[in-house]
């Protein structure tokens, strides 16, 4: 009997510890902080002539989720916005250094 209870507990423990399936309590400040980073990186990208529109879309989505109180999703979306912002800056830097005409124009 004990063992069965143990097994059931263990099963739920595993489920709960699976990212995406669990919803531990989150404060809105976490998502807000990531969102702020995303915004400032996005601004930097635009100043570098390299902003991506998808970054703005994800930031908007994250804000909406925060307003709705869905902090877990808001954080996920804000993290994606930050990733896009980072990637856009990388692209702009890369291109400034290494843009080139395609071989067929040489």
């Amino acid at each position: 009997m004990n063992k069965i209870i143990f097994c059931i507990l263990f099963f739920f423990l595993l489920l709960v510890s699976t990212p995406g399936l669990s919803t531990p309590a989150l404060s809105s400040s976490e998502a807000n902080a990531v969102l702020k980073q995303a915004m400032s990186l996005h601004k930097q990208a635009i100043a570098n002539e390299g902003g991506w529109r998808i970054t703005g879309k994800f930031m908007k989505k994250a804000k909406k989720l925060l307003d709705k109180g869905d902090r877990r999703k808001a954080l996920d979306v804000a993290i994606r916005a930050r990733e896009f912002a980072e990637l856009s800056i990388m692209q702009a830097d890369m291109e400034k250094k290494s843009w080139s005409e395609p071989p067929y124009l040489k």
Partner: peptide
């Protein structure tokens, strides 16, 4: 034995997700 029970649960878990 204890180990096979754990294994069973683990397989159940994997199939679940």
């Amino acid at each position: 034995n204890h180990a096979s029970q754990l294994l069973f649960v683990f397989v159940l878990y994997i199939s679940f997700i």
